[in-house]
Nucleic acid binder design. Structure first.
Length: 428
RNA sequence: UCCCCGGUAGCUCAACAGGUAGAGCAUCCGGCUGUUAACCGGAGGGUUGCAGGUUCGAGUCCUGCCCGGGGAGCCA
């Protein structure tokens, strides 16, 4: 048994392969089957005389997505998609498939999402999800190589980190708890124990958003580092994004080709990324006629405009404190400004990173809880971190699906996750 | 929650000004010795999202509801 991704190692040899019938073509007394096995797709050729009668007959009758076993000889041939094909000797039907719903012609998005469990057998979806896997691996390798320790945060949490309107409420025995919207607060505790840490996992937002950038369940990698200040963490994020881009270009070229992704914009991504302050961003927007005022957060159009000004990810820092969460540390000279950063992906993809330096002064943080109207009791443990050796620390979160959507240049984040969860869509 | 757009064959769509439902793909049958979403010929396949209404007549017009898409706000 061999895997299709290794087919070039078997030129001229007889091999055995299991896979699903991806497509079928024929001409007179010759039959072509495209077979996929999860690692790739290969063309098998059936010629009368070179294959037994039963196998030839089966190659004619076998339906899309039937599972088959194929014996044959690997041959290099430019006429075959991928450059290699298998001259079939014997074909066996292992498991039939009847009326496979996803056909070769186009389908609407509703139908495809309703059949997501089958849809991701298709070439493009397959390519996107393989890129996703590589993005995740790149994030983890990058952080592991820099001495960050994976310390996972809980998913069931007693309270929110940012507000209470966007949380999913869950019955937890006889009380209410919430699905995590960020592992960050727990990360801060872990950073005091392990120095540099990250958590990686799903996060949940009950926002009633219906846009190409939103899912109710999405994945984030969130590094948090002791002794790092705002600009240290910005440098870290910059290095990490660059590392991800380079990794995808190195290991997932084939998938980018399947997606017909123009890789020039990705090849162009080098350090340093452009850096502007929130104030500068506001000025650029106002010059262009946007009606945004100082103190307001950017909307989708504003983000798209700003990120299109540059051909690299855009770093925006020093947001107004009132746009950001209670735990953001503030600029000493101007407490209206938070030590925060967002990074917008180029080509109009919007925010992929959000982070900043955390408030490490107990009194300031207590004051902030009151300002934001947050209950103290469930956050008592969080305040402890400022009582027992408070420390300078910073971190950020990188959204996996938005990053994948940008790298793949797909329109909507729903294709960047195996089973997207959206408002009004929870099946399959 | 709000604003637009849509729902017709298994799928993607068409049906002009209201006149009685049509094509490609998929399926089945037949043809073709190198196909590349192959192609060619034939066949079967419909309660036009649901409920009312207007009309001699409704896929088409009106009202309500359901479902989906795009966007806004909110956010990564």
């Amino acid at each position: 048994m061999i895997w299709i991704e290794n087919i070039n190692e078997y030129e001229g040899k007889e091999i055995l392969l299991k896979g699903w019938v991806y497509n079928k073509r024929s001409s007179g007394k010759i039959r072509f089957l495209l077979i996929r096995d999860g690692t790739g797709i290969i063309q098998a050729v059936f010629e009368i005389g070179k294959v037994d009668e039963n196998s030839f007959e089966l190659a004619d009758k076998v339906t899309q997505e039937s599972l088959v076993e194929l014996k044959g000889v690997v041959r290099k041939d430019n006429r075959a998609p991928g450059g290699f094909e298998i001259v079939a000797k014997e074909l066996k039907l292992l498991s039939p498939s009847e009326n496979y719903p996803i056909t070769k012609k186009e389908h609407g998005i509703d139908f495809l999402l309703q059949h997501r469990h089958l849809w991701f057998r298709s070439r493009k979806q397959f390519a996107i999800l393989r890129i996703r896997a590589e993005v995740i691996k790149a994030c983890r390798d990058f952080l592991d190589n820099r001495g960050f320790i994976l310390v996972d945060a809980p998913i069931l949490t007693p309270t929110s980190c940012e507000g209470t309107t966007t949380l999913f409420e869950v019955n937890y025995f006889d009380r209410k708890v919430y699905l995590s919207q960020s592992g960050q607060l727990y990360n801060e505790a872990a950073a005091a124990a392990f120095g540099r840490v990250y958590c990686f996992g799903p996060t949940f937002r009950a926002e009633k958003s219906k846009t190409r950038r939103h899912l109710t369940e999405f994945w984030m990698v969130e590094p948090e580092a002791s002794f790092m200040e705002l600009f240290d963490i910005i440098n870290l994020a910059e290095d990490m994004i660059l590392y991800i881009v380079e990794r995808i270009l190195e290991k997932r070229r084939k998938e980018l080709e399947i997606l017909e992704r123009d890789i020039n914009p990705l090849l162009n991504i080098k350090k340093p990324f452009p850096r502007i302050t929130y104030d500068e961003a506001i000025k650029k927007l106002q010059e262009k006629g946007f009606k945004i005022k100082w103190g307001e957060d950017f909307g989708g159009d504003e983000e798209t405009f700003l990120s299109n000004l540059f051909d690299k990810p855009l770093i925006i820092y020093y947001y107004p404190a009132k746009c950001k969460a209670f735990y953001m540390k503030r600029l000493k000279e101007n407490p209206e400004i938070s030590l925060s950063v967002d990074i917008l992906a180029p080509e109009g993809y919007g925010e992929i990173v959000g982070g900043g330096q955390r408030e490490d002064d107990l009194k300031e943080l207590e004051k902030r809880l009151k300002e934001y109207n947050l209950p103290r009791e469930p956050l008592e443990w969080y305040l402890d971190l400022r009582k027992y050796g408070s420390f300078v620390h910073s971190g950020f979160g990188l959204g996996i699906e938005r990053t994948v959507a940008w790298l793949c240049k797909i329109k909507h984040v729903r294709e960047a996750i195996p089973f997207p969860r959206m408002i009004d869509r929870i099946y399959p």
